[in-house]
Design a protein around this nucleic acid. Structure first.
Lengths: 98, 98
DNA sequence: TGCACACTTAGCTAATTCGCTAAGTCTTGC
DNA sequence: GCAAGACTTAGCGAATTAGCTAAGTGTGCA
């Protein structure tokens, strides 16, 4: 494996790592049904707002989400919907493979 | 989020987490071109065989890979090819989103 | 039988991650 | 302007992860 290939896999892994957490998967799933503000997501998930905010910023920093501030609230939405395809493949892994 | 939904997201995250590492992504990519034994993969990747073996067993334990012992060698192959679609979506995230 | 090879398991340390609380920024309404 | 609300940033301890080396298991060949 060359150094550049290594760097490429590392960048790709960074994006996947952003998805590799139950709360962040929930967020992506929920945002597939439309934008949500941080407070709405915080209500749905059982953790403190700072924790939710950091999960959101992780997903945003790799380019999966985008945010928009309106008034005192910040709304997040999916920037790259194809990540939703992951759920289908995960189901295939969980069943018998395909 | 209900307790069962939470458990479901956790199980899904476990599968994604197995992919969230540069070496394991390389392995999946390489196995898309056919089965390989542990020693072949070890030669390609720049780490010790025990480390490669553990990466492989992680991917196997979540159901992404399967292995077959032939003689003194162990060959691994992709059990769920749809994980290869992840690479396409990652590229979309890296470019401008889609 | 015994040795070499292919691989896995175990045990260790260093580094990363996740949750929390506390504190800071910014907007809105009084 | 000030207080309250929405959010982010920072700093902490607990838990997980990734690499290594050493040791264990199993196969094949002399």
């Amino acid at each position: 494996m060359t150094a550049t290939a290594q760097a490429e896999y590392k960048a790709q892994a960074g994006i996947i790592k952003a998805l590799a957490h139950p709360t962040r998967l929930f967020i992506v799933d929920e945002l597939s049904r439309g934008e949500r503000c941080v407070c709405e997501l915080t209500d749905m998930i059982g953790v403190e707002m700072p924790t939710v905010s950091r999960h959101l910023s992780q997903l945003k920093s790799v380019g999966i989400l985008e945010d928009e501030k309106r008034g005192s609230q910040v709304f997040y939405r999916l920037r790259v919907p194809c990540v939703l395809n992951f759920f289908k493949c995960i189901k295939a892994v969980q069943s018998n493979g395909k």
